[in-house]
Simulated assay, not measured.
Amino acid sequence: MKRLQVVLAVALTLGGVNGAFAHSDTETTTPANGATVAAVEEIELRFDDPMRVTQLILTGPDGEIELERETGLEPVTVMRAVPIIDLASGDFLVEWRGLSSDGHPMQGGFEFSVAD
């Protein structure tokens, strides 16, 4: 009986570990996190597994900036959006929320700066 309990405990532990690795995560962003760039033509997030991005917010020195998304709400591994206006110099924050391929809510963000 004790051996069965150990086997079940190990199986449950390994099952939990595999489940933890199933969540999507950002692999790269454009611009890169912490980068200083001269201009921004697009915002890009690359995920290691399909992500249904439900919210994408760009905030700069003058507040929120509207983005035009290239894709709708379907799961993607690459999410691209274009700022509606040219970005002035300053610091910017991109925040996103979504659902990973296993249905778990996820969120993240990154920062970059635009310099003359």
Rank of each mutant, 00 (worst) to 15 (best):
M1W: 05
M1H: 11
M1L: 14
R3K: 08
R3C: 02
L4T: 12
L4I: 15
L4R: 12
Q5H: 14
V7Y: 03
L8S: 15
L8I: 14
V10Q: 11
L12N: 13
L14S: 09
L14W: 12
G15F: 03
G15E: 07
G16D: 06
G16A: 09
G16I: 05
V17I: 15
V17D: 08
V17P: 05
N18S: 06
G19E: 11
A20R: 07
A20F: 14
F21H: 07
F21E: 10
A22G: 11
S24W: 00
S24D: 01
T26W: 07
T28E: 10
T28P: 01
T30H: 07
T30M: 11
T30E: 12
A32M: 10
A32C: 10
N33G: 14
N33T: 11
G34S: 10
A39N: 06
E42K: 14
E42I: 03
I43Y: 03
L45H: 06
L45I: 12
R46G: 02
R46H: 06
R46S: 13
D49R: 14
P50S: 08
R52P: 04
V53G: 03
V53E: 04
T54P: 03
T54M: 04
I57E: 01
L58C: 02
T59Y: 00
G60E: 03
G60S: 03
P61K: 05
D62E: 09
G63D: 02
I65G: 02
E66I: 07
L67V: 10
L67R: 11
L67A: 06
E68W: 09
E68R: 14
R69P: 02
R69D: 01
E70M: 10
T71W: 06
G72Y: 07
G72H: 10
L73T: 12
E74Y: 08
P75M: 10
P75I: 09
V76N: 10
T77N: 09
T77D: 06
M79H: 11
R80I: 02
A81H: 08
V82I: 13
I84R: 14
I85M: 11
D86E: 15
L87I: 09
L87N: 01
L87F: 09
L87T: 05
A88K: 04
A88F: 03
S89I: 10
G90P: 01
G90S: 05
D91L: 14
D91N: 08
D91F: 05
D91E: 08
F92K: 01
V94L: 06
E95T: 15
W96S: 04
W96P: 02
R97T: 12
R97K: 12
G98K: 03
L99I: 12
S100C: 04
S101F: 09
D102K: 08
G103S: 11
G103T: 10
H104Y: 09
H104P: 00
P105S: 12
M106N: 02
M106E: 14
G108Y: 00
G109W: 00
E111L: 05
F112A: 01
F112P: 02
F112I: 11
S113N: 07
S113Y: 00
S113G: 12
